[in-house]
């Protein structure tokens, strides 16, 4: 049985980008407002899941040939290495640093912290794990049919 899901597919093509943009916003907003690496990663995965629901797995893997297991591992490594970078500065493991400075054009105080790298690792691990689980389960399903 083939379901006619043209509407879902058309909407998905647009909505995915909106969700992804929102995910990036959430990721950076996390510094001062609700958001952060974990939630950003989850929202990214939900966009990918929406794509999986609207299209079949083959199409999605063709468009995005990503090995999510690698993403997971890389994410953990990124977080681990930000922690280990502390050793170079002779401070305890996982010490984070931050920097305030004034941005003249946007007339705002900007704040950059090393936690952002750590959070990138977290987001990657979350996306990787969620997608590894979902892709491997749904691929198995495809094989059975």
């Amino acid at each position: 049985m083939k379901i006619n899901d043209v509407i879902l597919q058309t909407v998905t093509k647009i909505v995915t980008f909106i969700i992804l943009t929102f995910a990036i916003y959430l990721f950076f907003a996390g510094h001062h407002n609700p958001g952060g690496g974990f939630i950003g990663g989850l929202v990214i995965s939900s966009a990918l899941i929406l794509m999986l629901l609207a299209f079949d797995i083959e199409t999605v893997t063709q468009t995005l040939p990503i090995n999510y297991k690698v993403i997971t591992g890389l994410g953990v490594l990124v977080s681990l290495f930000t922690g280990m970078a502390s050793f170079v500065f002779h401070v305890p493991f996982l010490s984070q640093a931050h920097l305030h400075f004034y941005m003249p054009i946007v007339n705002e105080e900007i704040n950059i912290a090393t936690t952002i790298i750590f959070e990138i690792g977290v987001a990657m691990a979350v996306v990787g794990t969620t997608m590894t689980v979902i892709v491997s389960i749904s691929r198995n399903k495809g094989d059975e049919e």
Binding site: G35, G36, G37, T115
Partner: peptide
């Protein structure tokens, strides 16, 4: 931690080891 979001400061900085 340079972050106004207390929850995230805990997650990524104060208790970063837990998150890791």
């Amino acid at each position: 931690a340079g972050s106004r979001n207390m929850v995230n400061a805990i997650l990524a900085d104060f208790r970063g080891f837990d998150t890791l």
